[in-house]
Design a protein around this nucleic acid. Structure first.
Lengths: 223, 223
DNA sequence: CAGGTTCATGACAGTTGTGTGACAAAACCG
DNA sequence: CGGTTTTGTCACACAACTGTCATGAACCTG
């Protein structure tokens, strides 16, 4: 779960942002001043910080500088001022992005995602977790209970494809198409590989909990 | 010196951007289509890429996806379209930022700086440690158990490339591309050099613990 | 419950991927 | 220049993987 701290003095805007972010699946909490924001972040560090520029007391620029003194958290400025000087100054102070109000929530979350992807790059590898099962596309690794599991290339591609659409059914046709690149072919092939994959990633392969069959529809991977 | 590649089909805009960037102290060069841009970046990788969305042939989104397939250079979209859908789609495709034309050059460069600051964080470590193995890119040195190991230039480049993306799989294609600069070539070449490298940096070369093979995927270096 | 459909699985032969040693060309260097 | 190191190519052997098929179980449907 991604936690976002919103530092904004206007109650209406702050609440609107918090609601919209929660709607999108974030854990969001607010602060009405820079001082309060700094304090809250020190207590429970957020994964992202949104900050307004015009704040009572300590202003946004100073707030960013103080945050940056000992933290590398992605900071996005959300300001009413659409002025190159402000934008440049905010970025120079250490912000990562600058949006002008009113912001489209979809754009905001897309930018937060892009920023987190960038902040993560180089440090850790991204991992998808399904209970006791972990899949990391970039590390080319599958783990069950934290222990690495050896899977073959096709099994891995198949698993990644299913993980990419976690929770959604994929028909054998779709899988043949996306994993094998076959426009046509024997759908049984998919069964065989699903079977082999189950042997490796399910505690009880005859009673799959992750990679389940939806009779007549296809397969899906669930959490 | 920072090199920026500008992919933009409108000659006037491209030239204006190139001039403005040079004015600001960047080395800037352009491409009038996605295909040309991809080719130029492959030959001489840029530190930043600016890309338009509406391009003849391959469009901007596809261009970004192709760049992202094997590179995480900071990408900024510069587009005339101010539409949330486009912005979200571009960021999802892998862009880091999105600016709407006409852009203020000062804002553009400030955003480029912010982006590079972010992209550098984490990667700038000059000595990387993988258990008993140490790789120092700057010193051009490799140590096993603290003892220096003599590796050849290509072996060293190969090792650095793998260390730079520690924990992530790199395909033989990517390695050929990045270590040798070959756009095409015999992938077995990589095997041979990996084999030679293992002889030097692995305690038990037949049972590699650091430089491991991921059948069908490529190689990776792990801690 | 009979008949048809859909799915799981084990076996097998053909194919592919990888490690390695040998060798010649190229680069390097006193 | 002549010797040494490095590099890239090749061929071969072996292990691992893939796709097909046959069989039987599980599941629907009327």
């Amino acid at each position: 779960m991604t936690a976002v701290l919103v530092i904004e003095d206007d109650d209406r805007i702050r609440l609107a942002l918090l609601l919209a972010l929660e709607e999108e699946g974030y854990t969001a909490y607010g602060a009405a001043s820079a001082e309060e924001g700094l304090r809250r972040h020190q207590q429970t560090p957020a994964d992202n910080i949104l900050v307004d520029l015009m704040l009572p007391g300590l202003d946004g620029f100073e707030c960013i500088r103080q945050l940056r003194r000992d933290d590398d958290v992605p900071i996005v400025v959300v300001s009413a001022r659409d002025d190159t000087h402000d934008i440049v100054a905010a970025l120079e102070a250490g912000a990562d992005d600058y949006l002008v109000k009113p912001v489209a929530i979809k754009e905001l979350t897309a930018r937060l995602r892009a920023l987190r992807r960038r902040a993560r790059a180089g440090t850790a590898v991204s991992v998808q977790v399904f209970g006791d099962l972990e899949v990391s596309a970039e590390a080319g690794e599958v783990r069950l209970d934290g222990r690495p599991v050896a899977v073959t290339r096709t099994e891995f591609r198949l698993l990644c494809e299913l993980a990419l659409h976690a929770g959604k059914v994929l028909s054998r046709q779709q899988l043949l198409q996306r994993v094998w690149g076959y426009d046509t072919g024997d759908e049984r092939l998919v069964d065989v590989h699903v079977g082999r994959l189950r042997q490796k990633i399910e505690r009880d392969p005859t009673n799959p909990r992750h990679l389940v069959t939806l009779r007549g529809l296809g397969y899906k991977l669930q959490r």
